[in-house]
Design a binder for these strands. Structure first.
Lengths: 177, 177
DNA sequence: CCTCCACTGACACGAGTGTTTCAGTAGTGC
DNA sequence: GCACTACTGAAACACTCGTGTCAGTGGAGG
């Protein structure tokens, strides 16, 4: 259980990495930016790896919070896309992609399993949204895999080009079903 | 125009980053691994940034080579997916994703524009494969944006889970069109 | 032979890295 | 008052980083 000071600093550090990226974050600049010191960061999180792990967990919490109240039933895909496409979420999603890529390159360390976990999280939500008859069939699995691919591919495009209009138009046919 | 020694070392370095990732590559270990020295690397590529830029260009060359002889007409999407799903290409694609993510976080430096460029490359190929009647319509643009999203989202899934069977099955309906 | 040129080895420089050691300070419960 | 815990500051340690300096190689062309 984290102390009050710990969650406070974690929150500040989280805000920092959202704009600076996680890849080449280093303790001294981070500490200076959030009004702390490397000594305190190390004291509270044990090591840099501990800090990064905490930050990754923090980011994942944001993601899981979304998935929790996205609901089920028809229109999930559309609602998910609305959330992904919201400009306010772009830093989080960039961070998400960074962690995703990193966990593929370097399967050890604090990143471990991030990519796989996030695939499973989302597939599970899409599964819950399917009608009961399809949910446990091969067709159901194929369908939700497909929906996930579409959402994530669209997200990649959006993050690179920022062209929400073109991409949302491309998704429109799938969003209604 | 690069000297013989330069392309030779670039090729060796390319093989190295395919397995070690580009994110936290550093000159001394890289030089040691490919039987060279930091001195020579710096001499040939000017700086580390120059080396990274050359490596990125090298990776992009692989990608463009694919796009060049993927052909046009029906079945492009299926052929592209076959290529993406081939286990032999996984290191390249992981590297690709890494560069993609990085170029979003850090829009300056050698990564600049990588993500955007790659979106445009692929969209252009898909465009060339469309029948002439659709090619310049809004529907055509929407369709190829959608195809690209599907391919890239599926790739993300594949790189994380390795579950080629599930994902290829999910794509099957789109692959035939 | 001599010169030019592509390439290479050894080493040092200054800056930045995560982490540790030692010494505190503020606040709380007894 | 006193111990105890949570937290913090300053300085140092042992690296690694990219890069620069200086001095060579070896081979090809004149």
């Amino acid at each position: 259980m984290p102390s009050a000071r710990e969650t406070e600093l974690l929150e500040a550090a989280y805000r920092y990495v959202l704009t600076h990226g996680l890849a080449d974050v280093s303790l001294r600049p981070l500490a200076a930016a959030i009004g702390s010191s490397t000594r305190v960061l190390l004291y509270l999180f044990g090591s840099k790896e501990g800090l990064v792990k905490a930050l990754l967990a923090r980011a994942r919490a944001d993601e899981l919070a979304l998935l929790a109240d996205i609901g089920t039933g028809p229109g999930v895909v559309a609602r998910l896309w609305d959330w992904l496409a919201a400009p306010a979420h772009r830093p989080l999603l960039t961070l998400w992609l960074e962690a995703y890529a990193r966990s593929l390159v370097e399967p050890d360390g604090p990143w471990a399993g991030f990519a796989r976990a996030t695939v499973e999280d989302w597939l599970e939500v899409l599964r819950a949204a399917q009608p009961e008859g399809v949910r446990d069939t091969a067709a159901g699995l194929a369908l939700r895999t497909r929906e996930l691919a579409l959402l994530r591919g669209a997200l990649l495009d959006l993050l690179a080009t920022g062209d929400g209009e073109r991409i949302t138009a491309a998704l429109r046919t799938s969003l209604t079903t």
